[in-house]
């Protein structure tokens, strides 16, 4: 088995071990959020935020180039990794909040606003006809959420492409788009575990308002939950999770970690605690399984992880469908 060799061999271990230490943290991080993302139908927002990370990488590349680090990549070491993480995370959070601002509609006469729900789950009040809603947005603010995401997504991708090209970095585009898990260092691993612990703690603190908001946004507001605060918290956590997951699966595939485990878990149970636990377990199995597949078959790690996650989603679904069919026949 290649995997055992790589992890025990003194020459190879320093390259592979940090990735195998960081990977469970990234999986747990995304596994904690995946159920909420699926239940609130925020997958497309995750996609927008993850692609915005590409713009953040461009900004970091340009900063590195301007301040003298650059042609060899983005530098190395804890300071450099942390700096890149902070810049990209700030960019992603700004993108997430930008999506919120663009899709906000005014709910106060002339001033003030609250975000509208995502397009797909919007519990549109029946009394607000489409024309009323259009009027309510006023002054060009108040795009549909999917339009806002699309705008941020392409703008960030374009900015990233321009800045990365201008920075003359030697790092390949593919590593950003599809991940470069074997370049994970010990600093990344520490950062991943710290982020996971912080996210877990935040979710524990905000669990009741979060669940209420996810289930019934208008009801939560009426019962005193600060839905703006809850939504902003989830957006920030999503942005951070995306930045961390990006290293593992890349910009394009990071969303898979935030969507597939939740979809599989929700198909398997109707109890919230079970769904969250299953989401974490499936994410860990998918990530670790994908890494093993990657090492054993020499495939790219990002696509391997996504492949294993899809297998974990599809096989139980097929088994359930088969069982249901057999039951109906008998």
């Amino acid at each position: 088995m290649n995997i055992v060799t790589y992890l025990t061999d003194p020459t190879c271990a320093p390259m592979f071990l940090p990735a195998f230490v960081a990977a469970p943290a990234l999986a747990i991080l995304c596994g904690l959020l995946t159920s909420l993302v699926v239940l609130k139908r925020m997958a497309f927002i995750g996609q927008g935020v993850s692609h915005a990370a590409f713009g953040g990488i461009g900004v970091w590349a340009m900063l590195a180039f301007s301040f003298g680090g650059a042609a060899s990549g983005f530098g190395s070491g804890v300071a450099s990794d942390t700096g890149r993480f902070v810049v990209v995370a700030v960019f992603c959070v700004a993108a997430a909040l930008g999506i919120g601002v663009l899709s906000e509609r005014r709910t106060r006469a002339g001033h003030g606003s609250v975000p509208i729900p995502t397009r797909t789950n919007a519990p549109t009040p029946e009394s607000e006809t489409r024309s009323t809603r259009r009027r309510a947005t006023g002054g060009g603010v108040g795009l549909e959420a999917d339009t806002a995401i699309g705008i941020i997504l392409v703008a960030a991708m374009a900015l990233g492409a321009v800045l990365i090209k201008a920075s003359h970095t030697t790092q390949s585009w593919e590593s950003f788009l599809f991940g470069s898990v074997w370049s994970i260092g010990w600093a990344d691993a520490i950062l991943a575990w710290a982020t996971t612990l912080a996210t877990g703690l935040t979710l524990v603190i905000a669990r009741r308002p979060l669940v209420f908001w996810a289930y019934d946004e208008s009801g939560a507001r009426a019962f005193g939950v600060s839905t703006r605060g809850v939504r902003a918290t989830l957006m920030v956590l999503l942005a951070i999770a995306t930045v961390v997951a990006m290293k593992l699966a890349g910009v394009v595939l990071a969303t898979a970690l935030l969507v597939v485990p939740g979809a599989a878990a929700l198909a398997a149970s109707r109890r919230l605690a079970t769904v969250v636990t299953l989401g974490v377990i499936i994410a860990v199995l998918g990530v670790m399984g994908g890494l093993v597949v990657s090492v054993e078959t020499d495939l790219l790690p990002g696509p391997s992880i996504v492949g294993v996650l899809l297998v974990l989603l599809v096989i139980p679904a097929m088994a359930r469908a088969l069982k249901s069919r057999l039951t109906n026949h008998t």
Binding site: L39, N121, F212, F223, L272
Partner: peptide, 30 residues
């Protein structure tokens, strides 16, 4: 307040009792 129903509720993995308990969400310390 009893809000208008929405499609998302049917697949949310909570029991009826948990939904009723949500009313205390903003008043219960974490």
């Amino acid at each position: 307040y009893v809000p208008q129903r929405h499609e998302g509720e049917s697949r949310f993995p909570v029991s009826g009792f948990q939904v009723v308990l949500m009313a205390s969400a903003s008043r219960t310390p974490w």
